[in-house]
Design a protein around this nucleic acid. Structure first.
Length: 167
DNA sequence: CCCTAGCGGTGCT
DNA sequence: AGCACCGCTAGGG
């Protein structure tokens, strides 16, 4: 399966979006390492025009999300790599309204698996599309932040943006 | 703040 | 099948 890797420049650094033939399959955090060259391979399933369209949608959606506002439109998300449980968690995360946070236990309960809070945390950590699949809106039952694969500074910042924009 | 027991999903062997 | 991970939780110092 060919994957197209495309840099997405934002006010907080350059993310790298990866597109499968089904849509956005992964969003990588900005790193200090040099941004890899765009890899757009022709002739294998994915039309370049489609990827360009998805790139544009991702760019706009990410811009809005980083401003703490709801993206108007998302590219198709390819979450097929996850397990059944992970996909259920990720689907539920997308229904947490912007500006709200749920606890890992609340997410687990909403899935009908009230004892699986820890597994929910693990699934959040495996979220391949951070920010757009808002795993940052989940924290511990005691109100503390809990973990974040992108680093707690990002989690704090994203929640602050959403709180600010919501006022 | 710390510690502990208990929990479910996942990936490795 | 077993086992050691984990973005957790409730309970207790």
């Amino acid at each position: 399966m060919t994957v197209h890797r495309v840099p997405i420049a934002t006010c907080r650094g350059t993310f790298v979006a990866c597109f499968s033939e089904r849509g956005l399959v992964r969003l990588n955090w900005p790193t200090d390492k040099p941004v890899p060259k765009r890899t757009l391979t022709t002739g294998h399933g994915v039309g370049l025009a489609k990827v360009r369209r998805w790139r544009q949608l991702t760019d706009q959606a990410l811009r809005r999300a980083l401003a703490g506002r709801a993206p108007s439109r998302l590219p198709p998300l390819d979450l097929s790599a996850g397990t059944a449980f992970q996909r259920r968690v990720w689907r539920l995360l997308r229904r947490i309204p912007l500006g709200q946070t749920w606890s890992y236990a609340q997410v687990a309960a909403a899935l009908g698996a009230p004892a699986a809070a820890r597994a929910v945390g693990q699934a959040c950590g495996a979220n391949p599309i951070p920010v757009l699949v808002p795993c940052h809106r989940v924290r511990r039952s005691d109100g503390s932040l809990g973990g974040f694969s992108g680093g707690l500074a990002w989690k704090r910042w994203l929640l602050a943006q959403e709180a600010r924009a919501g006022r």
